[in-house]
Each structure stands twice: as C-alpha cells, then as structure tokens.
C-alpha cells in the first residue's frame, strides 16, 4: 500500500519534479462535483493546461479571471484547463473541499477544480507555488512550465503572455519559447512531516 506513494515521493525527490519534455503522470482526483476525474476522461483533447492553484493565495485570486478566460478560449481549441488545489487543509482551512466548491460557485469557474488531498500529484509534478502552470500536449509531454503571464497584479500591463504564446507555438507545430518561467507566488502548504 505504502510503496506506490513512497515511489512517487522518492521519484519527485530524486528528479525534482517534472521538466519540459518529461511525460506528466495522469491522476485520479476528486472534482468539486464530487466525481473523480482523470486526463484520460478527455478523449479529444490536444493538450491540457494543468494549474496548481488554491482559494487563499492572493496571487491565485488575482489570476482567477484570467484562468476562466483561458479555459473559455482554449478548451474549445482542445486545451482544457484543469485546476488542482494541493494545499493541506489543516494548514489552510480556507482551502478545504467545501471552500473549493464555494469559491468555484462564487466565481463561476468554468473548469474542473480538483482536490489533491494526498499532495502526491503536486509532489510528482514538482509544483512549488500557487499558481503554477504545466502545459501538456496530447501525449502528456510537458511543453511549458511556469507563470500565466508577466504581470500578476495588472492584467492590462502584461507584456509577455507566456501561456498564450506557448499554446500558439504548439498550434504552429513549434516548441514554446520560453518553455520555463518563474514567478512570485505562495508556497504550497505541505502537510507537516510526520
């Protein structure tokens, strides 16, 4: 029982999570509608915009409207957004499953919002902050890791639309450039080590 979890943790520790070019593992996580969801459920997808995010991080909140807009634009093109909350509920009660449902309803999230209650997926991906984007292609190969764009506070002052540029590159059959960016964000609230 413990071995698969241990292997995932060990792998993430050794490898430091996913890098561009790696194959991202699929997951089976509970969505806010109560049903479990996997990437395999999306038969026709050309790729996935996996975003580690949460309710309580001000940076995540600042990006909510932009994540909704991204799903509206890219899901019909074959790149659905899948948001995953990895935060430990004991450390962040505001990131509980019930609060996730409430926030999604309040903001009108048009994308699945999954709960990584064991933090195994955030660990396997190597996510370190919220929000943290992993853009995958159809084969779940990582094409881009990083920020959505280069201005968290003012969407109108964005000069580098990293995610949009990466998807445009994929659509043109090219490799995204940049394929990795860093951004200020909130630490993921990991469970206290036992």
């Amino acid at each position: 029982m413990l071995i698969p979890a241990l292997c995932i943790s060990l792998l993430a520790f050794v490898e430091g999570g996913l890098k561009v070019g790696d194959t991202a593992p699929d997951f089976k996580l509970k969505n806010i509608d109560g049903k479990e969801m996997s990437m395999a459920d999306f038969g026709q997808a050309k790729g996935f915009i996996v975003v580690f995010t949460c309710n309580t991080c001000p940076y995540s909140v600042m990006y909510e409207d932009r994540i909704i807009a991204a799903n509206k634009k890219y899901a019909p093109m074959g790149y659905p957004v899948i948001a995953i909350n990895p935060n430990d509920v004991d450390r962040r009660p505001g990131d509980s499953f019930a609060e996730m449902k409430a926030r999604a309803k309040e903001k009108g999230f048009n994308f699945p919002y999954l709960y990584d209650s064991t933090q195994e997926i955030a660990t396997a991906y190597g996510a370190t902050r919220t929000p943290h984007v992993y853009l995958l292609d159809k084969a779940r190969t990582v094409q881009y890791i990083g920020a959505i764009d280069n201005n968290a506070s003012e969407a109108s002052e964005v000069t580098e639309d990293y995610l949009a540029q990466a998807i445009a590159a994929m659509e043109a059959g090219k490799k995204p450039d940049p394929n990795f960016t860093k951004a200020v964000g909130c630490t993921i609230k990991w469970k206290e080590s036992k």
Partner: peptide, 20 residues
C-alpha cells in the same frame, strides 16, 4: 518590478518564486 521571471534567478537560481 512585476516582471518576476526577469529577476528571480538573479536573487538565486534555487528560488522558484514562492515567498517567504
């Protein structure tokens, strides 16, 4: 300076950008 990606590595390549 909101252009985070342009300066985070100058603080330290070991830093992902999460604070503190």
């Amino acid at each position: 300076d909101m252009d985070y990606n342009s300066w985070i590595d100058q603080v330290s390549p070991k830093w992902s950008g999460a604070i503190p």
